[in-house]
Nucleic acid binder design. Structure first.
Lengths: 219, 219
DNA sequence: CACCGGATTTATCATGCGATAAATAAGATT
DNA sequence: AATCTTATTTATCGCATGATAAATCCGGTG
């Protein structure tokens, strides 16, 4: 088949420069590996792209390098830098901030490709998942706990370990809603708003009782 | 190498009957596939068992059949039938029942092999995950909500959809604690008890406000 | 001891994989 | 129009995979 003509449609395609073409391949790789797993073949990926398999090796030295680009694009590029500000903007009520943040955050992660890539790479034991979760803790959960402490009139904003652990539980509860709907049930996210509001409210209420020691467990 | 002598140690092994040998293979397959994924080779599995690869086909018609046995053993055989009774035993306080149940439930699912098998099979899109979650809902979450309604003095115990959805969130929060520790962080579960108690307490408190409509969201 | 039957291994097939080298096609440059 | 450049394809290598058939081993039985 001639170049500049896609395999599937036979349509003429504009010739892209190296970087654009590379990005096109990465985008297709995300979709492909998210659905089929990283063990799927470069031949099948090339077939879906309408090119031959050796062409991929013109743009990426190895399959593992291509997968690395997939990680980078999904985990790093989709992270939104305004999340910090959303959480910390004290001109708004804390409840509103947390709900707005999780609305925005789940717009990013409640996507089939994001979740499946995350699950696949986590099972491979790649270090990037650990790094991502470290970032969640530092830039999301710690700040949330700090804002809660501030809203509750505490002077020392330093998060207690049990506060962070419980923030993980709230976070996980919301996240697992997405996993269940998108990965297991294949359904819609029409109760996302309810889940976020309920989780945030329950978290805030429980966090105080956790702190002032009325909870039966202390560390 | 002669039969009855393991490949690795050269030790003599007692000759097992067909069913015992089969179970031995399944147990090894669980460990192996949990760690390496279902795409890993039957040759490597056989190597770890100290037998040759074609021997597996004496006990299982195909790799897919062996994997089916893995599912069956992990999902069905490890389910404990006394969980229903633990949740419904009204001679004990509800809080205690829920905590005891989740202690027991997480003893089963907070295991690296269980979780990884579940994640791998879920990503494969096998139907067994959906069936498992259906069972969780019917035999765990619905009963929990019913017991909460009973404890709150309601006559109609029929769970409302938002009650069940929120029960899923609590369940997911606890579950995700295990995933995070066992899959991503590779750490210990030393805060399991705290996570369960906090989640259960927050759930019970939030469930009432959810029900009597003080929550800002209604369906 | 001789023999039978099932457990296990050896040998092999067809297929698919990641990767590389060489040939070709097509747009850009002069 | 002729030439250069590079994107893309064709051909191929070495290796691993799931699966099958035939040979071999070995414990149990007479």
């Amino acid at each position: 088949m001639a170049s500049g003509v896609t395999a599937q449609t036979g349509q003429r395609r504009k010739r892209l420069n190296f970087d654009e073409r590379r990005q096109e391949f990465i985008a297709a790789a995300i979709e492909f590996f998210a659905e089929e797993g990283f063990e799927s073949s470069t031949r099948e990926l090339a077939r879906r792209l309408g090119v031959t398999q050796p062409l991929l090796y013109r743009y990426f030295p190895s399959k593992e390098d291509l997968i690395g680009e997939v990680y980078e694009t999904v985990y790093v590029n989709r992270w939104r830098d305004d999340w910090d500000a959303m959480i910390a903007d004290r001109s708004l009520p804390l409840r509103e901030r947390l709900i707005d943040f999780y609305d925005s955050y789940t717009d990013v992660v409640f996507r089939r490709d994001w979740m499946r890539i995350f699950l696949f790479s986590g099972l491979k034991g790649v270090d990037i998942n650990r790094r991502y979760l470290g970032r969640v803790r530092e830039r999301i959960l710690d700040p949330i706990v700090r804002e809660c402490r501030h809203a509750d009139g505490l002077d020392d904003l330093t998060p207690l370990p049990q506060e962070v652990e419980y923030a993980w539980v709230m976070h996980g509860g919301i996240y697992y809603y997405g996993v269940r709907k998108l990965i297991y049930e294949g359904g819609t996210l029409d109760r996302k708003r309810f889940v976020i509001e309920t989780s945030v409210d329950a978290f805030r209420a429980q966090l105080s009782t956790l702190r002032d020691g009325t909870s039966p467990i202390r560390w």
